[in-house]
Design a protein around this nucleic acid. Structure first.
Length: 702
DNA sequence: AGGCACACCCACACACCAT
DNA sequence: AATGGTGTGTGGGTGTGCC
């Protein structure tokens, strides 16, 4: 690693200073221009506005060094040229975040899964009795002011890009407010504490953040490890993988940065397993241990997330630092919760059997009850019971009474007590309360309270057979994902994991900006050549037909691949390319039928975004993926099914040697290739498609 | 000889499904 | 429809052995 800490520490401040002193807006930034952009134009823009041009592609991540391209093929910080043109237009350095492109080869995405259930809806829990348990389970997450000044060096590299303004008083104000609020209403969160600083004042907290020059904004806007760090960390260590290798400062900071951006997953194993894909020479097990034992002490802050675990931004679009840790993905049951559950279930049984409200003693039977209510009642009530003769709730014993407990009960209970999900409440009842005994636990709890002791939650009631295979929570990452591999990655072991499948399209911001850019470029093309209808997405039937018809190669072979011979899900269908919905298809054919249906709909030029959304919502194709495919197809929608057929069939993304599907190499040949190269291209794609592609190149759409 | 890297453990929260 | 069966990864660790 060639960067010194100084580079990182001074970069943002120095940058904003320069801004103020009327230097060009790009002062201090260096750009390398990939072949897919109009180099001359953008170079002059950058130079005019104070930036520098890199003649050689950067080898690894450096602060303020960017590749300018439409596609991130280098796995280094890559910015869409729109960032330059838009900034130049407004003569303001725009927030670079939304313009940073994700790597085309993808990588695991790091946003917390929202989950199919509302498993993490706001879980404010009102500890009526101030639960004795887990109060300070964050005790090991202590903050050390002494370490604080180090806390940003390599993070800048990990975060890859930062054009934020750490001196932003807004950001500070925000943090200050949060601190106040949380101090007032403490619940469901853990505060990061320094044992030596337990009485940290607000002023101190604020200044802590103030001095932190770790950029608040980062590579991509999704709670991500991001792409850039790959490069940082690849080059940071050259030890053979079979040796134990020590953690470098970069690796440590990278891990911390990822944890800060995924605070709800800080105790999981999968987060560290995923990190291990980016950190050579270390396994998920070891990274997790490293974090738990050494790094958690200098976490200092995390980025604020919403109730779904998604990173929040302030009004400037920057991540919000906070020293309040959000809760994790699962919550322990407290004694109070167990007791309340027991009492409420007992009440339900009482209501059922006597049809009397245990609190008021009023009858639940009404004259105008619906027939269904009457029928339901007959199922649960004691037929021999004489109204008025029922025992008081206190004397009532559940004994061996067991249900039926309507599904409704746990549904409403879960809604009323969102500290756990409906499923979790039901499971707690089944596995713990029933085994312990409802009356028994109530009695235990009340006795403890009466004697001024603190009751404990139920435990050790599960006796399920040990499952075969390795114990859960072992992330011995023996076969590590090949680093920087240009080929499609293997489905990760985590793909079956419920929590790690990102539920939402995490690349929204980047993709959106890409598509917006695409749209803008398209409309520009339209206005320039309004007579010519052959812009992408208005790749008219006629043109597309003629291209396909005058084709020299036997093209039908690619469309005639039998989808029934491709097992579903296909090998290369990984969760970073596809949403969970994709995996709900039963067969490859079913998926392709849907794709066919969508591409045969009519989309107007302005509806590129709609198309991409439809592909996501109905086929489960991630926006970033379909956008990159459409680019590879020069917008010829009709080739989309072929893309999937070939990609799935040959386990290659993009599939090679398929007419109509442009690879990086093809584009390179088209631009700089020899005559022989052109012949190859003509053979592969045909002249019509080549003309189309050239137009794409001219318009910087590739 | 002990500190660090890495493996491994397991109760259980939360989930989904078949019947 | 209520219930039992059971998959899965979290959360909080401990065990092991290399350097």
């Amino acid at each position: 690693m060639s960067e010194s800490q100084n580079d990182f520490e001074t970069a943002p401040d120095h940058f904003s200073e320069e801004l103020k002193s009327h230097h060009g807006i790009f002062h201090g930034l260096k750009f390398y221009f990939a072949d897919d952009v109009n180099k001359d134009f953008y170079k002059s823009v950058v130079v005019k506005l104070g930036g520098a041009v890199l003649e050689e592609a950067p080898k690894d991540v450096k602060p303020d060094h960017y590749i300018v391209s439409h596609v991130n093929t280098f796995d280094l910080p890559t910015v869409d040229p729109l960032f330059l043109s838009n900034s130049a237009e407004q003569n303001t350095l725009l927030n670079i975040g939304p313009f940073i492109l994700p790597p085309v080869n993808g990588g695991p995405q790091y946003e917390v899964d929202v989950g199919e259930s509302d498993s993490r809806i706001d879980r404010r829990i009102t500890h009526a009795n101030g639960g004795h348990d887990d109060v300070d389970s964050a005790a090991d997450v202590r903050q050390s002011l002494a370490h604080h000044d180090v806390a940003s060096a390599a993070v800048a590299a990990a975060a890859a890009v930062s054009l934020t303004h750490p001196e932003s008083s807004h950001a500070r104000q925000e943090v200050k407010q949060i601190g106040r609020q949380k101090n007032a209403t403490y619940g469901g969160h853990q505060k990061i504490e320094d044992p030596s600083q337990r009485d940290t004042t607000l002023e101190q907290e604020t200044s802590l953040i103030q001095h932190d020059n770790n950029p608040g904004n980062s590579n991509s806007g999704f709670a991500a490890v991001g792409e850039a760090p790959k490069a940082v960390l690849t080059s940071s260590s050259n030890l053979p993988p079979h040796n134990k290798s020590s953690f470098t400062e970069e690796e440590d900071e990278f891990i911390l940065d990822v944890v800060r951006k995924n605070p709800t997953r800080r105790t999981t194993h999968t987060l560290f397993d995923e990190i291990s894909h980016y950190v050579p020479n270390h396994t998920g097990n070891s990274i997790r241990h490293r974090y738990r034992v050494y790094l958690s002490k200098r976490l200092n802050y995390v980025y604020k997330v919403d109730e779904n675990g998604k990173l929040m931004r302030d009004e400037k679009g920057e991540f919000i630092k906070t020293d309040i840790l959000p809760q994790g993905l699962k919550r322990k049951f407290t004694a109070d919760e167990d007791y309340q559950l027991a009492v409420n279930i007992k009440k339900q049984f009482y209501k059922d059997i006597y049809q009397v409200d245990p609190d008021t003693g009023e009858s639940l039977i009404r004259d105008d009850d619906e027939p269904s209510t009457v029928a339901k009642r007959k199922m649960v009530m004691d037929p021999t019971f004489i109204p008025g003769k029922e025992p008081g709730f206190d004397e009532y014993s559940v004994c061996d009474r067991r249900g039926p407990l309507s599904r409704e009960f746990f549904k409403t209970y879960g809604e009323k007590h969102p500290s756990h999900t409906e499923n979790a409440w039901r499971d707690r009842f089944r596995k713990f309360l029933l085994n312990y005994g409802i009356d028994e636990y109530i009695s235990y709890y009340e006795t403890e309270r009466a004697n001024n002791r603190i009751p404990e939650p139920m435990k050790n009631m599960t006796n399920r057979v040990k499952r075969p295979g390795p114990a859960p929570g072992n992330y011995n990452n023996a076969k590590k994902v090949k680093f920087m591999s240009p080929t499609a990655h293997q489905p990760s072991s985590a793909s079956a994991n419920h929590y790690t499948i990102p539920q939402d399209d995490l690349l929204d911001e980047e993709t959106l900006s890409f598509i917006t850019g695409l749209k803008r470029d398209l409309s520009r093309m339209e206005s320039q050549q309004s007579q010519s209808p052959d812009v992408p997405f208005e790749y008219t039937q006629e043109l597309a037909e003629s291209i396909r018809n005058n084709f020299t190669m036997e093209e039908t072979q690619f469309d005639n691949i039998n989808p029934d011979e491709i097992p579903f899900p296909p090998q290369i269908a990984t969760t970073d390319l596809f949403m969970p919905e994709f995996f709900h298809f039963a067969t490859t054919r079913e998926f392709l039928n849907k794709v066919h249906e969508i591409v045969n709909r009519t989309y107007h030029t302005s509806q590129a975004e709609k198309l991409v959304e439809d592909l996501r919502d109905e086929c489960g194709i991630r926006k970033a993926f379909s956008t990159s495919i459409l680019t590879a197809l020069s917008g010829d929608l009709m080739v989309l099914p072929r893309y999937f057929l070939c990609a799935f069939r040959y386990s290659a993304n993009p599939p090679m040697n398929v007419p109509g599907i442009w690879t990086k190499e093809d584009d390179e040949m088209l631009k700089n290739g020899s005559d022989d190269d052109m012949k190859l291209l003509i053979k592969k794609h045909g002249t019509g498609r080549i003309d189309m592609r050239k137009r794409f190149h001219q318009n910087d759409l590739v």
